[in-house]
Design a protein around this nucleic acid. Structure first.
Lengths: 350, 350
DNA sequence: CTGAAAGCGCTTACAG
DNA sequence: CTGAAAGCGCTTACAG
């Protein structure tokens, strides 16, 4: 056994490259070569070394290796709450793995200060780069991070970002347009919308998509602002917003909620007003979360390319890491309307 | 600027402790002391150094630091699919953070081989310890890992494990018992059950809990094996199993599915048989996933202490890491029956 | 209070 | 094909 064993508190520590070298009767340089599968080692040596590697269950210390090789091995994945972004995570781990990198998960709980702290820590080697999901960081802060040359990519930017920030986002506008067109084609003229936080990109773009269809359909001038309620992307928020819409003198025949959670809340409100879905009121959501098909009736909604967002996010990060190209990637992935049973033709044709 | 800049491919690399030392006119040892907030540095020096640290945006390299300090900084979190275990993840990150450690996420997609590979890599310093969620590893393999002194804790063991393996699990048996008692108290005598994979702990323990209540209630001898169907924990699996139960000559008045996904599948099957929930048939699930309260009617189910599983999992891992105590922790966290609207008194009293 | 030096565990030119 | 040596970026006794 090695004699430099003392420090590891408790328990026989792991074998070191030095131990393998001793046992095999070669230098640690040679052991390292075998471990890294370099071609310039004789088969005999290779076999001998590997035998001891297996016997001692040796695995090299990643910190030491990273320190010298400088390889990218950890990628941070900051996310407000993991449960809303699992698929992105799955997509991201997939690609990270192909690059032999580890994904470090950092939930920020929507707290700006945590995000700042996290990023600080990460720059210190906690991670070699980061994927920031729906970050609360402002454009200026991100620009500064970028100026400091920390490699990162923003997925689904919350606020409008400058051109110098690499982003990957979902096609909010066209998804919203598809949903609205679907409703218009069903004959709906009075469509209530429940937005998310008004200053978020997601809300802005989806509202823009919504408006553009109304305009194209010649419905915009007869449209009143009271048909737009602001929600907070939560089930309860959707519920209250829907109640306001339902209590309007001339209530909508369809409600377009800017995410599925709020759509679920709206459905609850509608039922409590003794109206039925979709006979009396159609409902459309956004996201296509896991439970969209479980609710009754199954929800018509816009599917986000979540898994792809993760995949492409990491791929883009590697482009930033590797090429240091001057082109700043700004990618938009398409969304898709999924028609299920919560939408039907407008009940009272005018 | 430092002259050892060449290697980092592209872009101005990060400042090193050396740069700070130069600028401040002190040794790197002193800078290190300031950085680590050691008391034995003069305020003047401290201020001077910190000024440059901020100016250059210096953050120390974690690999180097870990290498010398030997501190635990990465904890692996292996999990079959992240979407089923988000809350565990949230709980785990919380505690990891308190210990200033990073959580590395490793989805295994239920593939045994991936799990093995992952663990190999992790031992190499990818992580200093691991939380294995519902691992596919067998008792023997885990025992070997443990013998090699790799620190890990199993959360929710899939198969029965030896005494030498530290585990944290949910109280499956008592949760199942609570659910069954609830049904029995409502007057149900013919209760169909949809289990998960028959050889999994979760299935075994929940079935045992179920049986124990039947026995206590004097219902066991009139009970027939056809009332037990095996599912695979998926919505579709629950659907097919429920169909089999519903087509029985003497069909059950209640169905207990061993997870919420299968319960949702069962609900679909019931509706398609033109029966209503809970008037004709009561349904109970297990897990209390996010959508359990969204389905119609809201699902009565057993809540798993998911968040706590994560918290306690990491805390236990730290016990393993720190104390090297001979006591092998085997912790069970309690579950809780959540009664909602999918259960009602038995329709045909006999 | 501060610095010079050793060392953490590995990799990689550089010789041979 | 293999070894001696330098170095990755930091921390921490050990002197002073």
């Amino acid at each position: 056994m090695s004699d430099k064993r003392a420090k590891n508190q408790g328990g026989p520590s792991r074998a070191l490259i030095w131990d393998i070298a001793q046992k095999s009767g070669v230098s640690i340089a040679t052991v390292s070569r075998v471990l890294n599968e370099r071609p310039d080692v004789s088969q005999a040596t290779r076999d001998k070394v590997m035998a001891y590697v297996r016997e001692l269950g040796y695995v090299s210390n990643r910190h030491a290796r990273s320190l010298v090789s400088g390889h990218v091995s950890y990628i941070a994945f900051t996310v407000p709450r993991v449960d809303h972004f699992v698929e992105i995570l799955e997509g991201a781990t997939q690609v990270a793995e192909e690059h032999d990198a580890n994904l470090v998960i950092c939930p920020t709980r929507h707290e700006h200060s945590r995000e700042v702290t996290l990023l600080e820590r990460l720059r210190g080697g906690g991670a070699d780069g980061a994927l920031l999901i729906l970050p609360s960081e402002s454009k200026d802060e991100l620009a500064k991070l970028r100026a400091q040359n920390y490699p990162f990519v923003v997925v689904d930017p919350r606020y409008p970002l400058g051109d110098e920030i690499p982003t990957v986002s979902a096609a909010n506008m066209s998804g919203s347009r598809a949903a609205t067109e679907h409703l218009v084609e069903l004959g709906h003229k009075r469509i209530g919308v429940i937005t998310g936080y008004p200053d978020w990109n997601a809300s802005i773009d989806r509202l823009a998509g919504f408006h553009s269809v109304l305009i194209a359909a010649g419905l915009y001038n007869t449209y009143s602002a009271e048909m737009v309620c602001h929600g907070d992307f939560s089930v309860d928020g959707g519920y209250s917003a829907a109640c306001r819409l339902l209590e309007l003198a001339d209530r909508p025949t369809a409600i377009f909620a800017f995410n599925d959670d709020m759509a679920v809340g709206a459905m609850r409100a509608i039922r409590e007003h003794n109206l039925s879905i979709p006979e009396d009121i159609s409902v459309v959501g956004f996201d296509d979360t896991r439970f969209a098909s479980f609710v009754t009736p199954p929800l018509t909604t816009v599917r986000q390319p979540t898994y792809e967002l993760g995949r492409v996010g990491i791929e883009t990060l590697y482009r930033v890491l590797d090429e240091q190209s001057l082109e700043v990637p700004r990618i938009e992935l398409s969304t898709k309307l999924i028609v299920r049973d919560s939408t039907a033709p407008c009940p009272t044709p005018r």
